[in-house]
Amino acid sequence: MSRSATLADWVEGARLRTLPAAISPVAAGTGLAIFHDAFDPLLALLCLLLALSLQVGVNYANDYSDGIRGTDAERVGPLRLVGSGLVEPRRVKFAAFGCFALGALTGLVITAVTGWWWLLIIGAFSILAAWYYTGGSRPYGYSGLGEVFVFVFFGLVATSGTALVQTGFGAAVIGQCLLASTAIGLLACAILMANNIRDIAGDAEAGKHTLAVRLGERRARLGYLIMVVIAALCCVWLAGSTTWWALLSLIFCVVVAPGTRRLLRGAGGRELIGVLKATGIAELVCALGLLAGLLLGSL
């Protein structure tokens, strides 16, 4: 491209539309902490900073790794910095590592506040998983394991971690964390699935065998629906074990329903960009519904 990258290009490269996947687990986990009268604003804020830095870091890392492999040569979605030729790969790689460094520093502070040194191990695995999603010689995101990473780290680890560093490890809390983590993690996976359904043709041609590519278009669309339905059931189960106010989280079904209908009816290409955006908003609505409901139930 003939022009230089602007700040707006770097912001677009950070893919701010994906940030609900970082904010949502922290909101849901903090809701559980509030419900158990253990809310710690400092730890909640640190968890949010950690999640955001890793999310933006993995976005830049994906931009770099996919760009140098040529996976982004033909894209339907938003601009990619490396794939478009707008920014030198090494600069995008440096931006990714800078975000990971911020995440590592935040994790160190959380460890210092809680005194739980073993959190450093989880943090190290989180950063490695973020990089090797599309980085390295054998990226697991190219083998259909991307949803596993998202579920584990942006579902189980982020949601449960936010709750447990504030509440401790009571038996009741752990069970509720698993339900909240599953709901949030599956909605995050649905975001990735919608993205990968959109890119099935290009990914298959580039040798990127995402779960959507492996399942095929029809089964991938069904998989998206199953993720959304199970997430809703987990919200109901969580409400039954905490407070029925937590059913406010089900408002996400209203948000995600139109896009789900379009996806199941065969929407593709640029039509799925709207579905992707709606799924991200739905995850955030679910998390904020849990936060509000658990807050009301604690009063």
Rank of each mutant, 00 (worst) to 15 (best):
K93P: 01
L247G: 11
I197A: 09
W245Y: 15
A183T: 08
I197P: 04
A292E: 06
S137K: 15
W10C: 02
V236C: 12
L145Y: 05
G240I: 10
S65F: 08
T260W: 15
G146H: 08
I200V: 12
A27Y: 07
A239E: 14
I34N: 09
L222Y: 10
A282G: 14
G266Q: 13
L105Y: 05
L86E: 00
G223Y: 07
Y142N: 10
A61H: 05
A267W: 15
D37G: 00
S2L: 08
E283W: 00
W245D: 15
N196Y: 04
V173D: 08
A14R: 08
T114Y: 13
G289Q: 13
L79K: 14
E283S: 11
T30W: 14
S24G: 09
V256E: 14
V256P: 07
V173M: 15
G168P: 13
G170Y: 13
G115K: 15
S65T: 03
A278K: 03
C253Q: 14
T159M: 11
L179M: 13
V285S: 02
A287C: 03
A21V: 02
G98W: 08
L120V: 10
L105W: 07
R262F: 05
R69M: 12
L46T: 06
Q55E: 15
F125T: 12
A44S: 14
L225N: 08
C234N: 12
A130G: 07
V11E: 00
A220H: 03
P41W: 14
L156N: 06
E74D: 11
R262W: 06
Y133G: 01
G223H: 09
V255Q: 14
A239I: 03
L291E: 00
L272V: 04
D40N: 15
V56L: 13
A204C: 05
G274A: 13
A180Y: 13
A231D: 06
L49Y: 06
R265N: 11
M1Q: 08
F149L: 04
A21Y: 05
K208I: 02
P258N: 12
W131H: 12
E12I: 01
I121C: 09
G123C: 05
G85Q: 03
P89H: 06
G107S: 01
G259N: 04
F252D: 11
E74C: 02
G85D: 00
M227G: 02
G280K: 09
D9G: 07
N62H: 09
G170M: 07
C177E: 09
L79I: 08
A104R: 10
A130I: 02
A246R: 06
T134G: 05
R75E: 05
H209G: 02
D63G: 03
P25G: 04
Y132S: 11
D72T: 10
T167E: 11
A104V: 10
T6P: 01
D9A: 09
Y64V: 01
G135P: 07
V229E: 06
Q166M: 13
D63K: 03
G161K: 12
A27P: 12
G98R: 00
V87A: 01
R15L: 07
F149W: 00
F94D: 01
D63M: 05
L250F: 08
L276D: 10
G107M: 08
L290W: 14
L264A: 12
A21I: 02
F252M: 13
K208W: 00
D72F: 03
A5I: 10
P89Y: 07
L233M: 11
V236K: 02
E271M: 06
G57H: 02
G57M: 14
I127W: 03
P78D: 09
P78N: 07
G57A: 15
A27M: 15
R261W: 11
